[in-house]
């Protein structure tokens, strides 16, 4: 068995724990915005599975939602959507 004991003198350790937005609102980096046409969506979950930053949720009844606070606009969701239900449009800012 192993005992966990903090090191003395409050020294820093090279560890990180996952939290949302550790690098700030990364959605600000976006130049292209994914837009969903829920009429075309068949809830195949490909966009949710492939999203590299885990900001897409597919709810069969509600359709696709994207958290634009952290979506960087990479366009992978558009690429993998078999129904072209996601398109990328230029970001025009707030």
């Amino acid at each position: 068995m192993v005992k966990i004991k903090e090191p003395e003198n409050n020294v820093k350790l090279p560890l990180s724990r996952p939290i949302i937005g550790v690098a700030g609102k990364t959605g600000l980096w976006r130049t292209m915005r994914p837009i969903v046409n829920n009429e075309k969506c068949t809830s195949c979950f490909q966009c949710e599975i492939y999203c590299p930053v885990n900001v897409i949720r597919v709810e069969p009844k509600l359709g696709v939602t994207i958290d634009y606070d952290y979506c960087k606009g990479c366009g992978i969701c558009e690429d993998v959507c078999p129904r072209s239900a996601i398109i990328m449009i230029p970001e025009i800012g707030e």
């Binding site: 068995m1 005992k3 966990i4 004991k5 090279p14 990180s16 724990r17 996952p18």
Partner: peptide
């Protein structure tokens, strides 16, 4: 028994380095 400052054993998500 063995003593160390932390473990990464899958019970709590943690990144090292």
């Amino acid at each position: 028994e063995r003593t160390q400052p932390y473990v990464i054993d899958g019970l709590e998500p943690k990144g090292l380095g």
